[in-house]
Structures are given as C-alpha cells and as structure tokens.
Design a protein around this nucleic acid. Structure first.
Length: 792
DNA sequence: GCCTTGAAGTTACCG
DNA sequence: ACCGGTAACTTCAAGGCG
C-alpha cells in the first residue's frame, strides 16, 4: 500500500547482526504516528585513485583485500569541482564499517583520497532518495505487526520501494510539548549530584498545563511524573529553552542518580547526546528554542523573558521575575513558594508561545536544507548552507569535498563611504537586492569555474574580476550559479504565490517562513564560501565577489553623481541619495542597463543624521518611526539609561531639530541620577564572555566580574552575558569597581559620576556634539534655553 | 614618580 | 564554528618630563 507521512525524525538500527534498517518516524495525514522501515539501503563511500591509476584495477584490489567486509565495489563516473572523473564506490554491509574501512583504504597504494565517508547513514539515505525531513513523503510499503516492535507508534511499515518526496505545503497536526525545570541551588549553580529538581513545568499545544513539584527536597516523583506525562501526551515535538545545554543534562544525571529511566523516546530509550551536542529523542523532535533565539540580534540579553517579550509572547511586567541565584529561597519560604510556581508556569507558557513563533521557520529551514528538525537549530549557519549544497551536489553528480583544516587567509571586503556629517532632509536609501548572490550568479563565480593563474584560456571565455584579476569560466554554469539561481527563483515563485493568498491564512504564514528561509540560505552563501571550514571553501570566490561588489557600488555612485544626485553615504550594497524621484528612477534604470542588477528604493528618510563615523546614523521615517543604526542606543553593551538618553536626544533632534531642548532633557536625567532617582536596573552594563575565563589577557570589567561570579559558585560558560554595575571606590580602574548587578541593591553604592561621565554624557554628546554642545554645558547647573545663552 | 599617549585587547555593531 | 569593515571603550606599558 501507499503510505504518506510527514518525516519527523530518522535514525537507523542494525538487525540480525548485519542488516541496516532505516527508521523514518512520521505523522500521517490521518493523524497517526508511524514508523517506516527500509532494510534495502547500504552504506557506501568513494575512493579516488591517484592520477594514472586504473580505477578498475583499484576496485579489484579493494574487493580482494576486504572481501569479507565489502558488499560490492564498482567504478562510477562522478564530477569533482566540475571535472569528470572515475571513482570506486565501496558499498559496505553496515554503517559502523565505514569509518573503519575509510582509514584502511586511505593507506592503500594507488589511493589518492576517500570521499563522502563522513556522511551519517540516515543523511545518506535521505540525500540519495531525494527526500527531506519536515516535509511529506510517500512510500510503497506493507504493514508489519506493531506489537513485535514495542515502539510507541500507531503503525509500523516496511518499505517495498524507495520513498519519494511529495510537494505539499501544509503541516500535519503536530503535538508540541514545552517543558522547563527549576532546580534547588543554594550555592550558586545547582549540582545534579546533590541538588534536586524542585519543579518541572509542562504545557502542551492541546491545552494541558501541569506542574510537577518536589516534596521539599525529594524529587523522585517529580521526574517520574514528568516521564509519565511525556509518555501519555506522546508529543511529536518537545521544546525547551536552553534545554540541550541544561535541562536534559540535568534531568539525565538526576534520573541516573535516582535510578529512574528517562525512557521518553518513541523507541522507549532515553534522550542521548548526538551530532551537534544536541539531545536526540528518537521518534520525536527535541527542539531547543534558545538556538534560534541566539540568532535574534535585536534582543541583546537572551533570557527567556526577554525573548518572549520581544516576540510578543509575554510581557515581563505580566509575570514574576526571579533572579537565578534566588530560586532556592523562594522554594524554602512557604510564602514565596507560590511565586516560584507562577514563575515556572510563566516560563513554560513563554516557551510554548515561543515555539509558535519560531517552529514554523525551523520547519521550513529543515525541509530546505535537509537536516532533521532537532538538528537544524544546533547546526551553525555555515553547516546549514553546506547541507543544502551537499544535497545539490548529489543531484549534479558532484563529489562532495572533504572537510579540511585550513589556516585563515583574509581578503578585502566591501566599501564603506565616508558619510557627509550632519542633518540631511529627504534622503532615499537605494539597495541592491541580494547583491552578492546575484554577483556570483552573474559572473559565474564558483570553485569549479575558477581558472588558476597558470592555466591558459582565451579572454572571451572568462570573466575577469576587477582589482584582483581572478578568472572564472563563462560556461558551463558553475555550482554556485546553479544553486543560487535555484534558491532565488524558488523564493520569487513563493512570493508570487503569496500574493494570491490571504495574509491571515495558515498557508500564507507557511510560505512566508519558507521564503525567509530561502533568503537566509542564499544570503549566507557568500560568507560560507569565504569560510575556511567550508567544504566548498575557495578564497578567490569570496574575494572576487567582494571585488565585483566594490566596483559595482563605486560605479553606481559615479553614475549618481553624474546625473546630479547628491550621495550622502553608502555601505556595501546601499547608497543614500537626495530623494529626487526622477533622478532616482533614472539611476535605477542606468544600473539595470549597466550591470543587469536590480536596485530598489528601500526607504526614505524625512531627516537623517550622521556623525563623522561610518556605520552609525539615525533617521526619521515618514510614518514617524525612528531608525537608529550602529549608535550606542542599539548596542547591548551600554547601560539602559545611556541608551534611553541617546534615543530621546535623537528623537528631539530629528523631530524638532532643537539641540537645546535635548540639552535640558539630558540635564534633567543627570539631576535625577545625582538624586538617586534612577533604578539600578537601568545602570546594568552587559558584556558577553566570548572565551573561557582563563584565556583572557586583559582585566576588563566583565572578566573581573565573571571571576567573582565563579568564586560565588555560579557556573559560567563561553557566550554567557555578564551584567555588572560600577560602584564607588578608591581605584581608578573601572574593572576594580565593577560588581555583579544582582549583588548591588543599595543605590548609594553606585558610582553616579561614572554613569554621568562615561555613559550618559558620551551617548548624548555623540549626537549633540555636532551642534557644538560641550560636556560642561550638560553638567552645568545653569538653565539655558537660547542661542544667546549658548554663546555667552 | 607623575602624566600623556598610543598600542593592544575586547566587544558589538553594519551590510 | 559565515565574511570583512568599522567604532569605541578600557587597560597597560612605554615615553616624556622634571
């Protein structure tokens, strides 16, 4: 019979000692949970003979040497960076043989290298069959007696043929379960050896909401009940926030200690750590929403509360907030315990709410690049691009290059213009759409079209890169040209489909997430090819792309000036010009004519302000909104107070053009600060711990504070944000006077002077300095409202 | 020994 | 663990001065 299913998870097992069995865990349109087994697929890899070595002979040799381990050995035609070649395909019995044989075969005389021996078996299976996770598939299969397997599924099937992809954009009715744990932690960070899990909160997308709580410090039942609840609800997706780096590790350790089996997978196993450090729960997708939150650069301190507020899931003002180190106090105090319960509930509600916002995008990303849903978040941006490329390589019969360690080589990037400082009115911002992908397509820039300097080739057959001189064949189409064109075309197609849909419809939402995912992959491809960790790394490719970019933007600026358009600023793929509609139109046409590339008016600023610095400006939009770019107000490492002041100053300047009004405002803030009328929370400065604590040479404030936190028993990791405030003290060094923010409750300890001189004033002066305002004016007590006073 | 200066280290931003 | 370009801050040691 034909079986249709949405592929949720995939793994494999070995049965009868030597038969690999692919297991595809899916959801059917009839809302059943199924597993489809395929016992017909075998692992394999390729062996490239050294130059001049007969591949047939090599195949024969390998066959003889490893006759007991190898199922078959055949010569196949492939391409490698576009060049046709013959390789030996070595087919093995079971997947664990691959890494073993790879090493043995590498050492054989006549072998140049081994390829595609590092692709996990289930990924190999999906690639070869052209099927994708998080999408619909169809397979001819017979149903097996499910009781034989004792797995938690409705039905089990055995594939009779290869699965095929189905083009359907709707989603199955997925069951989602969110969870969150709270641990007892009287000494800073909790230790699973001794500290119990005091609360596990659970919420499902079917409306269940449960708290499992410890009896004082006894958590056996908490974990047991959680396991029961997961088994009862039988979720397809389990979501958590930082669950891969905390909750699962803690729960597993705790469960081990208490001799509880955390058997929540659909094959009754425990979650186990897998490829990118995530926990795999067989048959379900274990998704850590923190991974995607990390990519949301608009939120500076990525706590669950902050991300939930940013995405409109839950306001911080509508939920209890408890400092991590204080949790145990709330547990021990009978009056406060209720608040902790509310806190745990708010966390799990936020987590489930977050999944509504984030999962649809992850699902599309998963179905485009081909990584299972539980791996998509943990894979780096580069690896996501790469999986997409690996899929494409298979389709084009291209050999996948091996991972290599390479030294870093830098190259020249984009151009940034010196801005014309000051206030400008009515400015149009013109952007090249998808500049780098389009450059790569247009000039056929790709590792497989690259012509080495020593190769001789007629000039008409190549594109020669300006400045750097790299040559790329005009034909045939390079790998990147093919891949990028497909991505961009797919996106355009979806966008035109969307125009016919109701923006409130589910399908519209799905397509919108899909087009966003396609855009993300296309835009990351340039960065990918200049990344030394990339399989398809080629410095010249990245270098040529930016070189063309520089030429194109420079020429565009010249053309603008030639037709009398004043250029105020430009960065990489954008130019800021005086908004003269006829001239702007003409420029767009000229660019199209000259380069075959599209530039579009992205936005218009009624007023825009530049300091002398690049990459920092602010502008007033027609609808009254204000853009702040690069300035302190949008940086995560300035105090909220300084950012707020700058934002207000910008608003006053852009809307009313009155620096003195801004001065009065700044002075009023300074007065409040002096009187202690500002909340300490607005004085916190956050900085990321970007490496291990012992690797720092410099004694910066956040490093010093981080060391103090570690002393206090708080476990810190690379990537953690350190929040501190500056307090009064004898030392000149700021780092000596930095304290963890949660230890400073009394405002009288705060070094108000620091906040005035090093936070508020610099942030305000960044803007007001241009208008001739001096620091002394901001600090003076005299009121002054006019130009006359100013010049006195 | 004190003050100035600039390099080095560091973070976070832009596109 | 995607790129280079850029601004800005703090620390720290060298250099200038007396």
């Amino acid at each position: 019979m034909k079986v249709r299913y949405w592929l949720l998870d995939i793994n494999y097992g070995v049965i009868a000692g030597n038969i690999p069995e692919i297991r595809m865990w899916g959801v059917t349109p009839e809302n059943e949970r199924i597993v489809v087994l395929d016992r017909s697929f075998r692992p394999y890899f390729y062996v490239l003979p050294i130059r001049g070595y007969d591949p047939e002979k090599l195949a024969e040799k390998i066959k003889n040497m490893f006759s007991t381990k190898i199922l078959a050995c055949e010569v196949v035609e492939k391409r490698f960076f576009g060049k046709p070649l013959k390789v030996v395909k070595v087919i093995c019995q079971v997947p664990p043989q691959v890494p073993e044989l790879r090493e043995d075969i590498k050492r054989i005389r006549g072998v140049e290298d081994v390829y595609e021996a590092d692709i996990r078996f289930y990924m190999r299976y999906m690639i070869d069959n052209g099927i994708y996770p998080s999408s619909w598939n169809e397979v001819e299969a017979e149903e097996l007696e499910k009781t034989v397997f004792r797995w938690n599924v409705d039905r089990v099937f055995l594939a009779q043929g290869p699965p095929k992809p189905l083009q359907l954009s709707r989603l199955p009715p997925l069951r989602v379960l969110a969870f969150d744990i709270e641990c007892y932690n009287p000494r800073g960070s909790p230790n699973p050896e001794i500290d119990p899990v005091i609360i596990i909160s659970v919420k499902t997308n079917k409306g269940d909401e449960k708290l499992f709580t410890a009896r004082d410090h006894e958590d056996y039942l908490v974990i047991k009940e959680f396991v029961n609840e997961v088994q009862r609800f039988d979720p397809d997706v389990i979501v958590g926030y930082n669950s891969n780096k905390f909750d699962w590790i803690y729960l597993l350790e705790r469960a081990k200690k208490l001799r509880i089996k955390l058997n929540i997978a659909r094959n009754n196993e425990e979650p186990k750590q897998s490829v990118y450090g995530h926990f795999s729960i067989i048959g379900r997708a274990n998704v850590d929403l923190y991974d995607l939150a990390e990519e949301m650069h608009e939120v500076k301190v990525k706590t669950l509360e902050n991300v939930a507020e940013y995405l409109g899931v839950m306001k911080k003002s509508e939920r209890p907030l408890i400092e991590g180190t204080e949790i145990y106090k709330y547990w021990d105090d009978n009056n406060l315990r209720k608040t902790l319960m509310e806190y745990a509930l708010a966390d799990v509600r936020s987590t489930l709410g977050l999944s509504d916002k984030i999962l649809p995008f992850m699902i599309q990303l998963s179905s485009i690049v081909g990584l299972p849903l539980d791996q998509i978040g943990t894979a780096s941006v580069g690896r996501r691009v790469e999986w997409y490329l690996m899929r494409s390589a298979f389709e084009y019969n291209e050999l996948i290059p091996n991972l290599e360690e390479r030294p870093h080589v830098s190259y020249k990037g984009a151009i940034v213009l010196e801005p014309k400082k000051g206030l400008h009115e009515n400015i149009a911002v013109l952007d090249f759409s998808a500049m780098y992908p389009n450059i790569m397509i247009k000039y056929n820039i790709s590792p497989d079209t690259y012509v080495e300097p020593f190769e001789t080739i007629e000039e008409e057959k190549v594109y020669i890169t300006p400045e750097v001189g790299h040559k790329f064949r005009k034909y045939p189409d390079g790998f990147y040209r093919k891949v990028l064109s497909r991505l961009l075309e797919a996106r355009e197609k979806i966008r035109s489909q969307m125009k016919r849909l109701d923006p409130r419809s589910l399908e519209y939402r799905i397509l919108d997430e899909r087009q966003k995912a396609l855009k993300v992959i296309a835009n990351a491809t340039y960065g990918y090819c200049g990344w030394t960790g990339a399989r398809w790394y080629k410095r010249e490719v990245a270098e040529a792309t930016t070189a063309w970019g520089r030429t194109i933007i420079s020429e565009t600026i010249k053309m603008a000036r030639k037709i009398g358009l004043e250029v105020i600023y430009g960065d990489t793929d954008s130019i800021f010009v005086k908004n003269v509609p006829e001239k702007v139109e003409r420029l767009i046409e000229m660019v199209k004519e000259r380069f075959g590339l599209r530039i579009k008016p992205d936005k218009i600023y009624i007023r825009v302000f530049f300091t002398e610095a690049k990459k920092r400006y602010c502008g007033l939009l027609p609808d009254g909104r204000i853009d702040v770019v690069g300035l302190e107000a949008v940086r995560g490492d300035w105090s909220e107070l300084a950012k707020e002041v700058q934002e207000k100053v910008i608003e006053i300047i852009l809307k009313y053009g009155d620096p003195f009004k801004a001065v009065d405002y700044v002075k009023s803030v300074i007065k409040k600060l002096e009187r202690g009328e500002i909340s300490i929370s607005k004085l916190i400065i956050w900085k990321t711990l970007s490496k291990d604590l012992d690797k720092y040479e410099a004694h910066t404030a956040h490093v010093v504070v981080a060391r103090k936190m570690v002393q206090a028993g708080i476990r810190l990791h690379k990537g953690d944000k350190i929040g501190f405030v500056i307090v009064k003290g004898a030392s000149q060094r700021i780092s000596d006077r930095a304290e963890p923010y949660f230890l400073v409750k009394d405002f009288s300890l705060i070094d108000v002077n620091y906040y005035i001189e090093k936070q508020v004033i610099p942030a305000a002066l960044r803007i007001l300095g241009y208008f001739g305002i001096k620091e002394s004016l901001l600090k003076s007590n005299k009121k002054q409202r006019s130009l006359y006073d100013f010049f006195q």
